[in-house]
Amino acid sequence: MKQLRALALLPLMASPALAEGELKLYHWFEYIPQELVDKFQSETGIAVTIDTFDSNEAMLASLKAGKIGQYDITVPGDYMVEIMAGEGLLDTFEPAELPNFGNIAPQWLDVPFDPGRKSSIPYQWGSTAFAVNRDVYQGDINSLTILFDPPEELKGKINMLDSQGEVLALASIYMGMPQCNTDRDQLKALMDMLLAAKPHWASFGSDTAKDVLVSGDAAAGMIYNGFSAKARAEGANVEYAYPKEGFVVWMDNAVLLRDAPNRENALKFLNFLLDPENAGTLTNYTAYTAGVTGVEPFLTEEIRNSPENNPPADAPNGSFVAVCDEATQKLYDAIWTNLKK
């Protein structure tokens, strides 16, 4: 997923301090187009400084190690928003402080990781389901059985993401169970199902999820929607599925940090990101999906019509990977170890 962010090499610039003050952004590497930063600077006169990180965990560790208070805004993934809020690293704002607050797409307003959007706004989102090589299998791919109880043509040719959270979440969705489940029989059933499915899988790999589809090593694979679009662009005849049982979604969010040195400017920037035209510019750059209404007119043809980015009308809602408490997490850790031992 992260590789998509490497669409262009752009210098992360620190412009001279302007009269209107500054904004300190702690961001993923190559996850915002320079033109958007320039536009914000020329509109507001605020100088933007960007430092980068390469994983949610690295960002959390660095903030906890003393960087909190140095940045105004950062961009954590869904589960990390909840963790950061729990660690007391986030500030809150009132909807009235962001004139564009109403542009947040209704489905992303009351999210489980930040109910009512008190500290965060949607940045970009995408889904995690699976893609199938249509040269190998022509049947119906509208169900998670493709991964967990595959048809003959796909047996032994499936790549799974090497990511505990996403694999176990998708498996739970397939079994119709809640995540962070503590029901013994259900958890045993989940493990038995996974152990029975494993012989049909060729490999586990996250970074390689796209490559194995393009090279033909795998004929089907659990994959991020953006990765699947890239595989298609690289010539693999793959179709991305939005299975009827449900799928996993992820969302990166811009959050207001505690002790932000430039809180006012940070709110201006959050508001700026919620403007449909700006959200459109961002989406064209990242090739994921905005969580803002009214972006469509600003999207390029390619992004607007991408089948990976547009779930069919009858697709169910996706589920975020849930954040479990420690005791429950231990059970899922044990299931994962059992699966891979």
Binding site: E57, Y79, G165, S203, G205, K340
Partner: peptide, 20 residues
């Protein structure tokens, strides 16, 4: 294919990610 843990990947798994 990373289907089974080896000592190296087992150790790796304990340090990366949020479930470390």
């Amino acid at each position: 294919g990373a289907k089974t843990f080896m000592i190296g990947s087992l150790i790796d798994e304990q340090f990366k990610g949020s479930q470390g």
